[in-house]
Design a protein around this nucleic acid. Structure first.
Lengths: 228, 228, 228, 228
DNA sequence: TATGAATGAGTCTTCATTCAT
DNA sequence: GATGAATGAAGACTCATTCAT
């Protein structure tokens, strides 16, 4: 925006600036407003200057998608189990982190899952985001709290749940949602509980009230505030 | 495409043809390919001809969105309970119908939920699609199979589940999904089961195997074929 | 405007309606707004209907110009000398009538003199409007009140005067003009007085105050009101 | 026209070329022919090239009008009184300069006074052209050669006269005019003479033959040639 | 008589991209 | 490393006009 102050950057900084500006235009002014000229104008460079950093408009778009996936994956992976922590708890924490990231970075989420135009020949990217989840599901099966069953079936059902609530909240902010944290918790609890052995349901199940996670959320406000 | 054969249609047919062609272009070639000129060329008319039927590009887009919502709502509402049918079963059938519609009409689903450019001032449309679901949830609470609780919280958690699995499957067809029907069933079962009273879990619970719905789906192939 | 009431006219009436509407659009919404489609829409007919009455857009334009010239000529010619009236007075009355017509019918005046795109091959039209003036000048020379001299030189100088004040007032209504009637009178008096013999100046001269015309205008308001 | 020769100009030259070409099209082929595409084609550039110099069609139009007014004002103001010159003579010379400019630059005159689409909100431009005239009239009143009277009434009556003859000659070149210089002189003399005191009429009056201006014009041909 | 459907040409304008400087 | 100039292609949209009905 402030043209003069923006100049004099290192190459990498300019590249990042282009991406940020492009993302903003894309997300806040719609698909049609995403033009190289506008990006260039916004950052105070000539349109031609952009070609020093990206070879085409398409490449910018791809970089944006990639960046968004990377951010999502990183947020998901950032959840690390405490020593001796219940694997089901770890899993749930990861799922919450996933949703929280989507809500906190709706632009990233949109790019990663909603905007991307699928070109069949394009390499499949979302897998990395899915892998972290799958690993945690594996541990839940290994320790006997999840019923034995198809690992991918379980993982994908959980992914469906978190993606569903995230994308609805991101994509339809004007809908009269109930309290977002309650909703997210309900969705995750149901999805996870459905995979537990009968026995585990009494120690981890959502509505039965004795999961650490649920208890925590009842007593601590901060997270709710953040996500709202 | 076959220009000469396509001509000679009634006004209504041409209008429908325009919409269909536009939807195709929009969904399969991306936002940028949705131009009046391309639509016109595709159907063998001059660009100006389109203005006999729609007053602007925007109007076409709106018609498409509206049409898609209408179709989705209708598909959802089409599930009618058999005499004496278990409300939970009815609910699940509705959820399956929702997902099935999305998979069978991915373009409609994309228009209704994924593409839509949100204009804050636009009237909120998806609500109708949500209402049918909510009514059925109400009945499940009324008959005592669902725990008592926030009606909208329950409904929205179920909507999240079906939307999640639908949109992932629609939006990421190239991902190595497990069997789609199993996945859908798993997602729906978990989401519903999480709302049941403890007692009901033994008669309606997904993995415990005695729900009518599950049995049906195990024995009858057609639906699976349709959704695949 | 009121489509239904406008229909059901005779052919001549419709033709006139087209012209009136076209003139209005032309003058009040600018050159660019003069399109057959808008005219058609305005009068509640289809664009094609206009071709039953005019063979082209150009023909409408020509008809408008012709009509305007005819009206101007008629207004000019309508001034008839009273028995024994001073020819100079008649001349002045004619000049006033000319200006008054222009101010009362600015659209006509614009069409007749300002808008018309000159096509060299077009027959010259304004001459008729000039002839009436010229005849009256001839009489002023004949009776000895005008100096002897080039009839056309005199006539054209008078025409210049009335055209000048008319077109400025019509074309620049927002300019801070002095009282319009005073201005018109000043212009006409000067132009006429410049052609009088020295002797006549004392009986007809504007500022010397004894012309019938000036006296009339001092005592009667209506004309001023009309022209203002 | 000669595409290759026209290229290789400086930015300012190209801008001027665009304006000139646009003015020509506008004036000689009518309002409708004034399109960016035609201008571009005429000068051998692509339509898009014009947007380097003007941001819209409207801006070109405004530049043209402004340029024309500026030229007219400048031509008018260029008349400077010789030491001790009779103010009435100065005034008349100014009026002649005004008309001469109009005849020598009919396109400018058309733009300044005939074409201009009046937008009520637009700032009023012609005033500057009027001010020079008004100042000179003031001097004629001050030195007692003009009767005392309304300064603006006098000035506007003179403006009407020069505008009248200029616009008729410019707008109707095909009319069988008498000798243009004689006509112009007749118009100006009459208009000025009408404002003189009785006494001054014998030294400044047009037809009485002893004004410097008139004498000059009788003996010197060049100006006549130029204006014809 | 009037019109609905259609079109081809043309409107302004924006864009991604190139290339000499 | 950046840009100014330029362009070809395409965008949405309007228009005058035709013609079968």
């Amino acid at each position: 925006m402030n043209v003069q102050t923006i100049r004099d950057r290192s190459k990498a900084e300019l590249r990042a600036l282009i991406l940020t500006t492009a993302r903003n235009l894309f997300v806040h002014e719609g698909y049609e407003s995403f033009s190289l000229r506008k990006v260039a104008h916004e950052i105070g460079y000539s349109p031609a200057a952009i070609y020093k950093h990206f070879s085409s408009k398409h490449e910018i778009f791809e970089s944006l998608t990639e960046e968004s996936f990377a951010a999502l994956v990183q947020a998901s992976a950032a959840v690390t189990p405490a020593a001796g922590e219940n694997p089901v708890e770890v899993l749930k924490r990861g799922m919450h982190a996933y949703v929280a990231f989507g809500l906190a970075n709706p632009d990233h989420y949109r790019f990663a899952f909603l905007l991307a135009v699928r070109k069949p020949e394009a390499p499949y990217k979302p897998r990395a985001a899915y892998i972290a989840l799958r690993d945690r599901v594996q541990r839940c099966i290994d320790c006997g709290q999840f019923r034995p069953g198809n690992l991918d079936l379980f993982s994908q059902s959980l992914w469906s749940a978190v993606h569903g609530v995230t994308s609805l909240l991101v994509q339809r902010p004007e809908f009269p949602w109930v309290d977002k944290d309650e909703l997210i918790e309900r969705v995750i609890d149901s999805a996870v509980q459905g995979l537990l052995t009968e026995k585990s349901q009494h120690t981890n199940g959502g509505q039965h009230g004795n999961s650490n996670f649920q208890r925590r959320s009842k007593h601590k406000g901060p997270r709710r505030k953040k996500a709202a």
